[in-house]
Design a protein around this nucleic acid. Structure first.
Lengths: 233, 233
DNA sequence: GCCGCTCTCGTTGTCGACAATTTAGCTCTG
DNA sequence: CAGAGCTAAATTGTCGACAACGAGAGCGGC
């Protein structure tokens, strides 16, 4: 799914479990995270936990209290971060899409086809009632993963892996509020697919930016509507 | 040299020491890094070393051999990475500069003034003979740090901190080869300063991209001239 | 009753030891 | 002499223990 530590050690297991719980809100923003508790809960020693925790800290899922002694807590979701975060992911995906001309013709066609399938799956998921939020979340992730996985070089892919799950946190927590508006996202995705198919990098980049800007707008509207001051740890 | 020194833990000490040695080429690309060796050399246990190593791994200074067991080595400097890396730092700085209008008038003036000073210091350093490579390296870092430190939000600043030192590796190793061409960089910086002073975000962004594109070009020329195949771990 | 102090507990930082697994060298055989 | 198998060293993953530091509760003084 994401960066993941690959080697099937306990570190990776702890990391995956904690990250999942954070993204999905099981571990609430602001909740304290204690090494020993996690170790006991996961059935491992403190060393793998420590390793996973450090990774989660550098990736921004956890924040450490200032001081020589780090006190870890789940990073809060702040409205003022939405702009920067969504602007960032837009810039990064735009950078990936800009490399569209570097792809060969048949590779580009394959990419467009893959994107179309991914968007169809996403569209089918979000129109089903009742909405399966988890499925919508995953199929949406799949679309954007498909978009960049063959366009981004290793460094850019790293940054995308770093930023995207943080965006996912916002999308997941507020996904339920956006229920009626997910069809719009499908149409925006279709614009991206069309631009990719034609190999028009400039238009594709614009479509990507448009998509993320609107996503941020939708999200902020939901913020304001539901939770004027959500988590101010 | 960075702000990060005083957060006293042995972890930080090991991290700073190793990163410095990698950026400055003391630890050659491809060199293996063994926990116990580092621990013995730094006079600490393996735990802080392990922590520092993991950080250096996630930041891309080290690469791990594929397999269940991670074998760490200093990441190689490859010519084909130059494009992506410099394109990435250009995108990120451009994203920061794009927020220029969000700054107030007096803050913008202060930024322009600070940049001018930084560029003057850099210019004075690179025209001195013989060239003090270390000083040139640091004053160049200082200019770009000044440019983004008040424009970038925390997330963007994180990504910049992540990418910039990797660019620095290339600049440091090949800085000696660029000796005669550093004056050009000073002029490119002056363009950035002028655009910032006038608050012209678009022109500033273009100047930033121009600067990095040229830097990549200069670097690649040096690569090709001196080392057709430098470090292929 | 409120404020400050102390003391205990909680939590993290660090280390050494042990186990597992890979790697490299060595020997034996064809 | 070459190759395969085996053994030993090297290196990493993991754990439990100990020490240091901070936080919060309880206590005493004002």
């Amino acid at each position: 799914m994401s960066i993941s530590i690959e080697r099937g050690g306990r570190s990776a297991h702890v990391y995956d479990g904690l990250r999942d719980q954070i993204v999905r809100g099981v571990l609430a923003p602001g909740a304290r995270v204690v090494e020993q508790d996690v170790a006991a809960r996961m059935g491992v020693g403190r060393t793998p936990v420590r390793e996973a925790l450090q990774l989660l800290l550098t990736e921004g899922y956890l924040v450490g209290s200032e001081g020589s002694r780090r006190q870890l807590a789940v990073a809060p979701l702040l409205e003022e971060d939405v702009d920067e975060l969504f602007g960032l992911i837009a810039d990064l995906e735009a950078a990936a899409v800009r490399r569209l001309p570097a792809l060969g013709d048949e590779a580009r066609a394959a990419l467009a086809a893959g994107l179309e399938v991914a968007n169809d799956v996403f569209g089918a998921t979000v129109t089903r009632v009742p909405l399966d939020l988890e499925a919508a979340f995953q199929t949406h992730q799949a679309f954007h993963a498909t978009l960049t996985e063959r366009l981004a070089g290793p460094r850019l892919a790293r940054l995308l892996d770093l930023v995207r799950p943080q965006v996912d946190r916002y999308e997941y927590v507020y996904g339920a509020l956006l229920e009626g508006e997910l069809g719009v996202a499908t149409r925006e995705h279709a614009d991206i697919v069309a631009a990719v198919r034609e190999g028009d990098a400039e238009r594709a980049e614009a479509a990507v930016r448009h998509n993320w800007r609107n996503a941020a707008e939708r999200l902020r509207a939901a913020f304001w509507r539901e939770a004027p001051d959500p988590a101010e740890a």
